[in-house]
Design a protein around this nucleic acid. Structure first.
Lengths: 225, 225
DNA sequence: ATCAATAATTCTGTATACAGAACACAAAAC
DNA sequence: GTTTTGTGTTCTGTATACAGAATTATTGAT
C-alpha cells in the first residue's frame, strides 16, 4: 500500500474537523448531496451531531478544495461541473500522469513497481468477478500509485485533489462490457510498459487511457440521464 | 490584462471572508508572519477587527490551500517548506507551464499572445529601471498569462495555487545582476518562441527557465541567511 | 543557582446567541 | 388568473461564552 492518505498527509490530525471533512466528502461523492444542493448548516450539523461552527470550518476547507462553492448569503452549494470543466480537469490529470509515468520509469524502485503490479492483479480479480465497486477503487489506487512512483509530493497532492473532484463523476461508471474490457486491456499495457520501464510507451498509453476516460464521461454529458 | 484573479474566480464574493483571506495571504507572503509562526487567533482577529469565528474559517481555507498547517490543540502555523518540497513544486510548475506553452502555441489567439507581449515589454521597462518589485509582479503575471493561453481552467487554478505557495520564497529575489540579466534574456526567448508559435522551442525554454529558478532558490537553502 | 513540580494564564476547540438577509407563503391588486 | 406585495419563517454571517488543553510563570527542592 502506498502511504498517501487521499488528499493530504499530516502527522497528527484534528479529530472533529477531519471526521466532518470525511463525512461531507463521502456524502458528496456518493451522491447523497447531489451537485447544486445547498448544504443546510442546521440540518447537516444535526445529522452529524456537531454544532455549526466546526461544520462551517469544514465547509470552508472543502470550498478551497473545490468540492463546494461559496455563494454569498446563501451558504455553500455542492459544486456542479460542466462538460468543459471535466474535460479540463481530465486533461490536467493526463498531463500529470504522463509526466509521473515518465519519471517513474527512470527512478522508481523495483519494489514500488511491484506494488503497482500487485494492485493491478487484484484489479483483474475484481474484473473477473465483475465487482465494479472494488474495481473502481483499485483503478483509482493504481493511478495514484503510479503518480506516487515519481516521488514528488506536490505532484501527488495536485493529482489527488483533481481526482477527488472527479470521483463523483467517474463513480457513475456505466460503461458497457466492451468498454470495460478495453479499459482493462489498457491497464495491462500500462503495467507492462512500467515494468519494462519504457517511458515513451507508458506515457502514450496513459494519455490514451485518460482520453478514453473522457470519451466515456462525455457520453454522460451528451445524453444526460 | 488577463481576468485571472490570482487563485479563484467567482462571480460574487464573500465580503468578510475574502478580505480576511487576502490580508492573511499578504501577511504570510510579505513575511510579516514568517514560516513556523503560530497564528494567534485572538491577536490577529483583533488586528484585523473581526471576531475569531470568520477568522478561523479563513484559516481553514488557507490550510486547504497549503499556506498554513493545522496542528491539533495548537492552532495553525505558517507552513514552512523544505528544499525538497520547493523543488517538487517547481517541478510541477515546470510540467504545467511546458504543457500550457505547447497548447498555447497551437490554440492561443493572436490577441492573447499580444497581451503577453505587452506584459513582457512592461517588464523590460521595470528591468531598465531596476524596479525589482514591479518586475517581480510582472514576471509572475507573464507566467500566469502564458498558462491562461491554454484556456484550461483547471490548469490555471492548479498553477496559481502552486505559484501562491512559492510567492513567499521567490519574493526574496536576491539574484545578482548577471542572473537577473539571464532571466530577462530567457523571457525574451520565451516571447519570441510564443509569437512564432514554436511549441518545442517554447517548452524547452520554459523548462530551462524553471530549472534555473530552482537553482537560484536552492542557493537560498544551501546558504540560509 | 538549577531544575522540577505546580499554579496561573493564555489560547484553542466547540457551542450558543443574535442580527440581518433570503425565502416561502398568503393575501390583495390588477 | 396572474402578478405583486407584505409578512412570517428559515438560514446565513458574525460575535460571544465556556470548557479543556497548552504554555508560561512561580514556587519549592536539591
Amino acid at each position: 500500500m502506498t502511504d498517501m492518505p487521499d488528499t493530504d498527509a499530516r502527522i497528527e490530525r484534528l479529530p472533529l474537523l477531519d471526521a466532518i471533512l470525511s463525512r461531507l466528502r463521502d456524502m458528496i461523492i456518493e451522491g447523497q448531496l447531489p451537485p447544486g444542493t445547498r448544504l443546510n448548516e442546521g440540518q447537516i450539523g444535526q445529522q452529524l451531531g456537531v454544532s455549526r461552527t466546526p461544520l462551517r470550518e469544514a465547509i470552508k476547507y472543502l470550498a478551497s478544495e473545490g468540492l463546494v462553492e461559496l455563494v454569498p448569503s446563501r451558504g455553500a452549494v455542492v459544486k456542479q461541473f460542466g462538460a468543459r470543466e471535466v474535460r479540463d480537469m481530465l486533461e490536467v490529470i493526463r498531463i500529470l500522469e504522463q509526466q509521473a509515468g515518465i519519471i517513474a520509469c527512470t527512478q522508481a524502485t523495483d519494489a514500488g513497481i511491484a506494488e503497482v503490479r500487485a494492485l493491478h492483479d487484484q484489479m483483474l480479480d475484481c474484473y473477473a468477478r465483475r465487482d465494479r465497486m472494488a474495481y473502481y477503487k483499485l483503478n483509482q489506487a493504481i493511478h495514484t500509485a503510479i503518480v506516487a512512483l515519481a516521488d514528488n509530493g506536490a505532484l501527488c497532492e495536485v493529482h489527488a485533489r483533481l481526482q477527488t473532484r472527479l470521483k463523483r463523476i467517474r463513480f457513475i461508471g456505466h460503461e458497457g462490457a466492451d468498454k470495460w474490457a478495453g479499459a482493462v486491456a489498457e491497464h495491462e499495457q500500462m503495467i507492462l510498459a512500467l515494468e519494462a520501464r519504457e517511458a515513451e510507451g507508458l506515457s502514450e498509453i496513459l494519455g490514451r487511457h485518460l482520453t478514453l476516460a473522457w470519451d466515456r464521461v462525455r457520453a454522460e454529458f451528451d445524453a444526460p440521464s
